[in-house]
């Protein structure tokens, strides 16, 4: 028995070590499709924030609802501060959307935080998109992973590797989802017209204790460092909002009860369907301007005296 156990243990150790190396190799493989896509904004935003490390700025942290729904130029004109739109993809997860750039924020900065609606581990810790984006564009951000985040991300390593392998012959492309569409602030600046094929998301419940605990942490850590955090609702397709208004209202109440109230009415950020591009979160160019105007008004109200 002893001989058997030693042999099995030895085999497990050898196999585990090699599997670990394989995992690192798979984790660090780059996705060529992602290289040419708007996902590159993650790295560009990082570079911009490094450059503005010693300057007060407005930083937008969110998923693609802000990338495809904000005109940062208008915000800059209104507040005369540099703007960095880090918003790239909801699949990154709320935690890494914030942690990737947390160290580059400084006292006096304004953070506009408007994550998409949703609940569950994927909303907090992200999906396979996170591994793809970090491995391709910002591998140093893996140092920000917590143990829970690693456990969650482990199952996506293989999926990322498979996708990267599939995309190994991808070529540069055009369009709103291409890297070419990113402007100097990080917004998607590619002419986008409404498409008729948008289907509503099914928002069943938004109550998520773990996610709210993280929002509380963001709230506390920014407050402690003298950073102004504006927690605003994301934009959402009008018909989708009306369908799920009860859940969203319940969520807003829940946040308020937990001491992190939304600083604007969610209904104000739900626009007519014709102002959305291809998903309930992605706006057309006209829609993005309109949403930004609403946002500027809210910011002006909240940042009085800035």
């Amino acid at each position: 028995m002893k001989r058997f156990l030693i042999k099995v243990l030895l085999l497990v150790i050898i196999a585990f070590t090699i599997i670990l190396i394989i995992n690192v190799f798979m984790l660090l493989s780059k996705d060529r499709f992602s290289c040419y896509s708007h996902e590159r904004n993650v790295a560009l935003a990082y570079e911009r924030l490094v450059a503005l490390r010693d300057t007060n700025k407005i930083v937008i942290i969110a998923g693609s609802n802000a990338g495809f729904g904000i005109n940062s130029r208008l915000i800059k004109q209104a507040f005369h501060m540099p703007v960095v739109n880090t918003a790239t993809h909801g699949g990154i997860g709320v935690r890494m959307q914030f942690e990737m750039y947390n160290d580059l924020l400084r006292e006096g900065d304004v953070v506009i935080f408007c994550p998409e609606y949703g609940a569950g581990e994927a909303r907090l810790y992200g999906e396979s998109t996170l591994v793809r984006i970090l491995s391709t564009h910002l591998p140093q951000a893996y140092s920000k992973f917590s143990l829970a985040q690693w456990v969650h991300a482990l199952k996506y390593i293989g999926i990322h590797y498979r996708e990267a392998h599939k995309h190994r012959k991808s070529k540069e492309f055009d369009g709103p989802y291409s890297a070419k569409a990113i402007n100097e602030y990080g917004d998607i600046e590619w002419k986008r017209a409404h498409q008729d094929t948008i289907s509503c998301y099914n928002i069943s419940s938004l109550i998520d204790k773990e996610l709210v605990a993280y929002y509380k942490y963001v709230h506390a850590t920014t407050k402690k460092r003298g950073i102004r955090l504006l927690f605003l609702p994301p934009t959402l397709l009008g018909s989708n909002y009306h369908k799920d208004a009860a859940q969203i209202e319940e969520w807003a109440v829940y946040l308020k009860q937990n001491g992190i109230p939304l600083q604007a009415e969610p209904s104000k950020y739900a626009f007519h369907d014709s102002l959305y591009y291809d998903t309930p979160y992605h706006m057309t160019s006209v829609g993005a301007d309109l949403r930004t105007e609403v946002m500027i008004n809210d910011m002006a109200r909240l940042l009085k005296g800035l």
Binding site: L11, A15, I19, I22, M26, K155, G158, I159, Y161
Partner: peptide, 21 residues
């Protein structure tokens, strides 16, 4: 023999994780 075992374990692992979804 051990090299074969380890290679098969690793190959199976990779196949498992890439098909995990």
């Amino acid at each position: 023999r051990w090299a074969i075992y380890v290679a098969l374990i690793c190959a199976s692992y990779v196949a498992y994780v890439v098909n995990i979804e």
